[in-house]
């Protein structure tokens, strides 16, 4: 006689991936960008990233406790949000403001809507937008790269981002390696691409959204008479296309839906860059498209194999 047996529903075999493993892969993919930010902007980058991550995890923990829900800090999604958030700050930002950003991202955007998988907009991007509108000067106080090496200069050697300087003064080389003013994680295109390739190789994301997004931006730049390579390499586009627009929760499920989503992101980004009063539009365009996801989903549903449209009950009566 055998003892008690597990009698669960089929299948009895699992691939072995968990949410935690996926999030860990995203963290690994973000490491090159983090390292690049420390190299380019100095140790304060590391401090900001650490403050942001720790405050996000603490916010998540406290929220779950207050709401009497199971603890979800183990899935590492709060760590990912923390890193992404920090990569969107200028290095001169006060850590106190960074903590404020974490509260907005985790408490308001993520947990108040039901936690992981339920937020309808990207927490990191929404928090960035909130901070940008609340502390617009502090959030766009850009520091020269390698300013930390120059002992004589004061902390804030302000500069403009390549997109805001009007004329294209930064070389492609500097843009690609991130040697220009900007947010912590968005300047070094090389580091972001390394992370993106890792995510694709690990099958965490497919290249569909990033490539469509970049392709749309490139085509529209040509239409507007802008330099497409400059548009692709500058601003938050790479970080947004690889890490933000590929967030599972806030993107459509089907490939067609994801394509439409990415085209929309590219379109809005270029419209804001070309016609808006802001120099940069990646965060806004992704968040706006996030909000449109339910509608995109409605019109991009997969057609089941051999599907015959069911007859309406009312029509037969």
């Amino acid at each position: 006689m055998v003892g008690k047996l597990y009698a669960s529903s089929s299948p009895h075999l699992r691939q072995g991936d968990t949410t935690r493993k996926i999030m860990l892969d995203v963290i690994i993919a973000l490491l090159p960008a983090c390292i690049a930010s420390v190299v380019i902007f100095g140790y304060m980058s590391a401090v900001l990233i650490a403050v942001s991550v720790v405050s996000c995890v603490i916010c998540e923990y406290i929220c779950r406790r207050i709401m009497k829900r199971n603890n979800t800090i183990g899935d590492l999604s709060a760590v990912v949000t923390g890193i992404l958030l920090a990569l969107n700050y200028p290095v001169s930002l006060s850590p106190l403001i960074a903590i404020g950003g974490s509260v907005v991202a985790i408490v308001i955007v993520k947990q108040m809507f039901g936690g992981i998988g339920q937020n309808f907009v990207n927490p990191a991007l929404t928090a960035r937008i909130v901070l940008l509108t609340s502390f617009s000067s502090k959030m766009s106080n850009w520091t020269e790269p390698f300013a930390y090496l120059n002992k004589n200069a004061a902390d804030a050697v302000s500069t403009a981002t390549p997109l805001a300087d009007g004329e294209h003064l930064t070389s492609y080389f500097d843009l690609f390696f991130g040697i220009h003013g900007g947010c912590l994680g968005e300047t070094c295109v090389l580091a972001i691409l390394l992370g993106g390739i890792y995510l694709v190789a690990r099958r965490v994301i497919t290249p569909l959204i990033p490539l469509t997004y970049m392709g749309t931006v490139a085509i529209l730049s040509l239409c507007f008479g802008l330099d497409p390579i400059y548009q692709l390499l500058s601003g938050g586009l790479m970080l947004g296309a690889v890490f933000m627009a590929t967030d599972y929760t806030t993107t459509p499920l089907s490939n067609l839906g994801r394509f439409v989503f990415a085209v929309g992101c590219g379109l809005l980004t270029m419209l804001i860059r070309q016609f808006g009063s802001l120099p940069e539009g990646v965060s806004f365009s992704i968040v706006i498209m996030n909000i449109l996801v339910p509608y995109i989903e409605k019109f991009t549903r997969l057609k089941p194999k051999g599907f015959i449209k069911p007859k309406k009950e009312s029509a037969s009566k």
Binding site: Y6, S8, T18, G117, Y248, T251, L253
Partner: peptide
């Protein structure tokens, strides 16, 4: 035989 822990859907 051990069952996998169920967590929330992340819409992957």
């Amino acid at each position: 035989a051990r069952l996998m822990e169920t967590t929330d859907c992340i819409r992957c």
